[in-house]
Amino acid sequence: MILGPGEWAVVGLSLKVALTATVLSLPFGLLTAYVLARYRFPGHGALNVLVHLPLVLPPVVTGYLLLLTFGANAPAGRVLEAIGLPLAFRWTGAALAAAIMAFPLMVRAMRLAIEAVPPALEEAAGTLGASRLRVAATVTVPLAFPGILAGTILALAKALGEFGATITFVSNIPGETRTIPTAIYAALQVPGQEPAAFRLILVSVAISAFALVASEILARRAKVAA
């Protein structure tokens, strides 16, 4: 398939944004999933709601809230600008929007996988002298690995496809925040650009299919190893 240089830039930026979002949210997602699965505390329900909010809020609302929080005139935005990490209308902001929108899917899959690990095994590990951290690292996470992987892939796919919050928070700036979905949207607004849109649609389908197949294979391998 022949992509123009502009389209390659869009694909490259999309991958950069989605991978950044996924990799950086992975530790937080895992921690949140573990805490939700294994601990009961006041605020457990509130945390659960907060994590899942982006799943049910209109994406444009999430994007606008991000703009209110991290925009150039907001205090948080000014602090980040000062330390050299501006978010509004930057690709970093696109990554944050994608991460937040993908977070519920990631946490949900990981939490279900962790809940499926028998607490009896964790108890046994504890009596063998393993600290909670070691139990999590050597028993819980390895046994939940297929689900953790599935959550990661799901988050990556969601991050690649994120549109509403992204375009609201960081707009649609070629070379900076124009990801595959916003590029497709832009192309469809201009008469005669349908072929370009169609090429990006094919890329998007190919990446998604590849991600799903890859996760399936990895999960199967993990299962065989276990």
Partner: peptide, 20 residues
């Protein structure tokens, strides 16, 4: 004392071996 620091050996009704 936390479980991990008690130095008890516990053999449960089921073996509870780590399957992986």
């Amino acid at each position: 004392r936390p479980v991990a620091k008690r130095r008890v050996g516990y053999v449960f009704q089921e073996p509870r071996l780590f399957p992986h």
